[in-house]
């Protein structure tokens, strides 16, 4: 191996989210499935971290734990942000609401007034380059556009400054958000995500099974093993250019292959 990529194990001192020996088991006794085992992970404010791993590595479980959709069996998660925004693999827009209505939904549920809701929704739709399309219904939009509405909606759910997390750094959780899109749309949306990340300064925890995507987007790439999901290694891939980026992709891919082949027996 000739690649000169430093591996980082020391977490930054201030964190948006930190896992302390987190474990998650589904089911009981003999039929129990260990999804996550002793996971230590930290994401700093404004940091872009990608999680990669094969099927069954508990990537989605891990995001659900951060989002509060599920509770860890052991260990604890220290969350130092406003409510994490979540973008799922499917856009899952509410089909009875317009694009703007979807973006306004989290604000409506948080009790934000109509005028403020409108303004925020228009702002966020502009951020994802959908200004003027607010009154379209989900079925009138393409897959890529729907996913951008979903992103705007997720951002709206963290920009609520009324709750306990007011003023703290925000966190965006993304669960393979581009994997259902065609190649060119995915490519463009990856660029868009980086632009939005820079514009908003939000921390991002991004789950994917695409190593190339992880290396292109993330500052750090974390590899999880499968069943049980453990942190195997992490790479600092911030600011890599063409040659170094390709080398990093190869190295992470090789590590991922090793993890997968260990399941062959």
């Amino acid at each position: 191996m000739t690649a000169t990529i430093e591996t980082r194990t020391v977490a930054p001192p201030v964190t948006t989210v930190r896992f302390h020996q987190v474990g998650k088991t589904f089911g009981q006794s003999t039929k129990a499935v260990v999804a996550l085992d002793q996971v230590d992970l930290a994401v700093g404010p404004g940091e872009f971290v990608c999680l990669v791993g094969a099927s069954g590595c508990g990537k989605t479980t891990l995001l659900n734990l951060v989002a509060g959709l599920d509770q860890p069996t052991s260990g604890r998660i220290e969350l130092n942000s406003s409510r994490p925004a979540v973008v799922f693999q499917e856009a899952a827009l509410m089909p009875w609401l317009t694009a703007a209505g979807n973006v306004e939904l989290p604000l409506r549920m948080a009790g934000v007034g109509k005028a403020a809701r409108r303004a925020t929704a228009a702002e966020l739709l502009e951020l994802v380059r959908l200004a003027g399309l607010g009154d379209k219904r989900p079925h009138e939009l393409s897959g890529g556009m729907r996913q951008r509405v979903a992103l705007a909606r997720a951002l709206a759910s963290t920009t609520d400054h009324t709750g306990a997390g007011a003023g703290k750094p925000s966190l965006l959780l993304m669960d393979e958000p581009f994997s259902a899109l065609d190649a060119i749309t995915r490519d463009v949306l990856q660029g868009e995500l980086l632009r939005i990340w820079r514009a908003t300064g939000t921390a991002i925890l991004f789950v994917t099974h695409d190593v190339r995507e992880a290396v292109r987007l993330g500052q750090r790439v974390v590899l999880l093993s499968s069943r049980p999901g453990r942190v195997v290694r992490e790479w600092n891939v911030d600011g890599l250019t063409d040659g170094a980026e390709a080398a990093a992709v190869d190295e992470v891919n090789a590590a991922l292959r090793t993890v997968i082949s260990s399941h062959a027996a």
Binding site: A67, L69, R83, A85, V86, F88, E90, A92, M94, L105, P106, M109, A110, R153, A154, S157, D160, G163
Partner: peptide
């Protein structure tokens, strides 16, 4: 679809 209430929960419902 089960994804909708899940999304709702993630949005703070």
């Amino acid at each position: 679809p089960p994804i909708l209430p899940r999304v709702g929960q993630a949005l703070g419902a």
